[in-house]
Every structure is written in structure tokens, then in C-alpha cells.
């Protein structure tokens, strides 16, 4: 018997390590595979390399940074076992308000940004309040917020794009670190992305708040019976996601140097794909947030490659849907206990 138990534990830990590694780095391996496929594809199609170039990768990372910042909020919500459908439209709402305040009202950008964050917090609080304290399923509550945000953004902007943001916020999305010495190599927004993910990874894995987030997502009941204020965690994670959505939106408006109601469109789903590819479980309580960053880069690489190969943008939407279903299928298979 004891012999059996030992061999059992050996095997289990071996396979557990293996599945853990593959889960953590699945997205990184995915990115490498995509890079190889698209490099070859680009060469075959154009007779020249357009994909594997510094400027293209810079582009991929630039695009990834905004969606990744928003996706971080989604990931943390997923960890608690909830879901937020409103994030993409919260991006649209907060950046519309910001653009109008800066451009039409002439408010100082700093103050306008504060108001943007206040609105992001408000929307997150609403989601959190309805989900945690009123008891409405997150799916429904955040679907409501999605429509409200989008509707208000359209009303405010009359669905007309607002171009030319103030120069003072340009550095966020278009600035480069050490530009005077090494040139336009390291975008500031990529550094921001890395920074928020490193902080988030630390907080979720090394602090009480992080541990409790996993406990709440693993079993809200067991968390409750361990003295954790489960509702407060639900509420707090929605608020945090609102803040991150606003932040992602701010970087996006700076990078695009314009605001339209389509800013952030579908970000909530891109965020889910990124999270799941990165190893976060839709069922809650599992996965490392840093994985989400790689998941988002994977997703952007995929579509960048398709564009390079000249795949019809409409087809790309279809492929995105396929990617979402595949990602979730993988998650379900991963969580399935072997009988």
C-alpha cells in the first residue's frame, strides 16, 4: 500500500507539473508557433519578409498593450468566478467623456482624466453592486451596463469621431522610452502594460488580497466560512476592472489620437480569449494573471498575421469567433476531471 501511495504521488506531481507548465506557457508557445507560421507565410506570399520585422512586432505590442490592460481587469473578475460584458463599452464611454471635456469644453487634461476614472469607477461600482449585493447574475448586470455605456457614448458624441487629442497626453500611447538616446524602440505603453502585469502578478500571488481572490473563485461558500467578505471581493474586482478599462481606453485614445464610439469595441471578448488562452479558468479560482498578457499578445499576433496574409477582415471576425470557442473548449477540457 505504501509503495502504491508513493508511486501515485510521484506520477501525480509529475503530470501536475507538466500540465502546469503547459498551461502557463501555452500562450507563449502559441506566439512562437504563430511567428514561425506567419514568417514563412509572409515570405511565400510576398517573396519578402513583412511579418518578422522590428516595426511589425512593435506594432503588435502597441496594439496588445491597450487590450491587455483592459483584459487584466477581466482576468481578475474571472478569477473570482464572475464575468464582465461591459468593459469594451466602458472604454468607449470614458474616452468619449474625456475627449469631449478636453476638446469641446476645453478642460485641463488632468482634470478630464480624473473625471474619466470617476466614471469608470462608477460603472464598475454599479456592476459590482448589482452582482454582489443585489444578487443579479454578473452576465445580466454587465450586459445592462454595456448598453448603457454604449448608448451614453453615442449620445454624447453623436456617433461622430473626435480627432486630435491634446498634445499633453500624446506620450501615453505614442511616446517612447529613452527616445533621445536609442530612438523609437521601446513604446511607453508597452512598459505600462508590463508594469501593471508585474504588479498584478505580485499582488495576486503574494498577498492576502490575491489569495482571497482565488479562494472566493474556488468556492465562494468555503471562502465565506473562512471569514472572507466574499461580497466585498466581488464588488472590488468590478471596480478595479472599471479603473483598468478606463486606463486602457486612455492609452488607446492617446495612441489613435482620436476617439470614436468604436474605441474598445469587443474588448470584453478579446479579454476573455486572452485570459483563457493565458491559462485563466472561466470557472474561477485558477490561472496566473501574467498569462493573460501573453494571451492578448497571442491574439493580436494572430490577427496581425492574418492581415499580413491578406485575409478578408470580415473573415477575421469569423476566425475570432472560432478562437473564442476553441479557447473555451480548451478550458473546459483542462478542467475536466479524469475518471
Amino acid at each position: 500500500m505504501s509503495k502504491q501511495a508513493v508511486s501515485l504521488s510521484d506520477r501525480k506531481s509529475y503530470s501536475a507539473t507538466l500540465s502546469q507548465v503547459s498551461k502557463d506557457y501555452m500562450s507563449v508557445i502559441g506566439i512562437i508557433l504563430l511567428a514561425i507560421i506567419f514568417s514563412i507565410g509572409s515570405y511565400v506570399k510576398n517573396g519578402q519578409q513583412y511579418f518578422m520585422t522590428v516595426s511589425n512586432w512593435k506594432n503588435i505590442l502597441l496594439q496588445s498593450s491597450t487590450v491587455a490592460v483592459v483584459a487584466l481587469g477581466q482576468s481578475i473578475i474571472l478569477l473570482t468566478g464572475n464575468f464582465d460584458l461591459s468593459l469594451g463599452r466602458v472604454v468607449a464611454l470614458t474616452s468619449s467623456v474625456g475627449a469631449i471635456l478636453m476638446k469641446n469644453v476645453g478642460m485641463a487634461p488632468g482634470l478630464a482624466i480624473l473625471i474619466m476614472f470617476a466614471i469608470g469607477i462608477l460603472m464598475g461600482s454599479f456592476n459590482g453592486f448589482m452582482t454582489a449585493y443585489v444578487g443579479i447574475p454578473a452576465f445580466i448586470a454587465t450586459l445592462g451596463t454595456q448598453y448603457i455605456s454604449y448608448g451614453v457614448a453615442k449620445l454624447l458624441t453623436q456617433a461622430t469621431p473626435i480627432p486630435n487629442m491634446p498634445e499633453s497626453i500624446g506620450w501615453l500611447g505614442r511616446g517612447y522610452a529613452l527616445e533621445s538616446t536609442i530612438g523609437k524602440i521601446i513604446p511607453i505603453c508597452v512598459i505600462i502594460m508590463l508594469a501593471v502585469y508585474i504588479i498584478a502578478q505580485f499582488v495576486t500571488s503574494k498577498t492576502k488580497i490575491g489569495r482571497n481572490i482565488y479562494a472566493v473563485g474556488g468556492s465562494s461558500e468555503a471562502a465565506f466560512f473562512s471569514g472572507i467578505n466574499v461580497k466585498r471581493y466581488y464588488f472590488g474586482t468590478f471596480v478595479l476592472a472599471g479603473i483598468l478599462a478606463t486606463f486602457g481606453g486612455l492609452i488607446l485614445m492617446s495612441r489613435l489620437n482620436s476617439v470614436a464610439v468604436t474605441n474598445g469595441q469587443n474588448y470584453e471578448f478579446d479579454a476573455v480569449i486572452g485570459s483563457i488562452v493565458g491559462g485563466i479558468s472561466l470557472a474561477g479560482g485558477k490561472g496566473r494573471v501574467i498569462g493573460t498578457m501573453f494571451g492578448c499578445i497571442f491574439l493580436i499576433t494572430l490577427f496581425n498575421g492574418f492581415s499580413q496574409l491578406g485575409v478578408d477582415p470580415f473573415v477575421q471576425d469569423v476566425l475570432k469567433g472560432v478562437a473564442l470557442v476553441i479557447a473555451i473548449t480548451l478550458d473546459v477540457l483542462r478542467n475536466k476531471k479524469r475518471d
Binding site: G218, S219, A222, G285
Partner: peptide, 13 residues
Amino acid sequence: KLQGLVQMMSVKK
């Protein structure tokens, strides 16, 4: 099962 332990967490945690 449901209230005493977070089933997907380790013994340690």
C-alpha cells in the same frame, strides 16, 4: 466539501 474547503486549492493554502 462545499463549505469547509476550497476543493481546488492545495492542502497548504
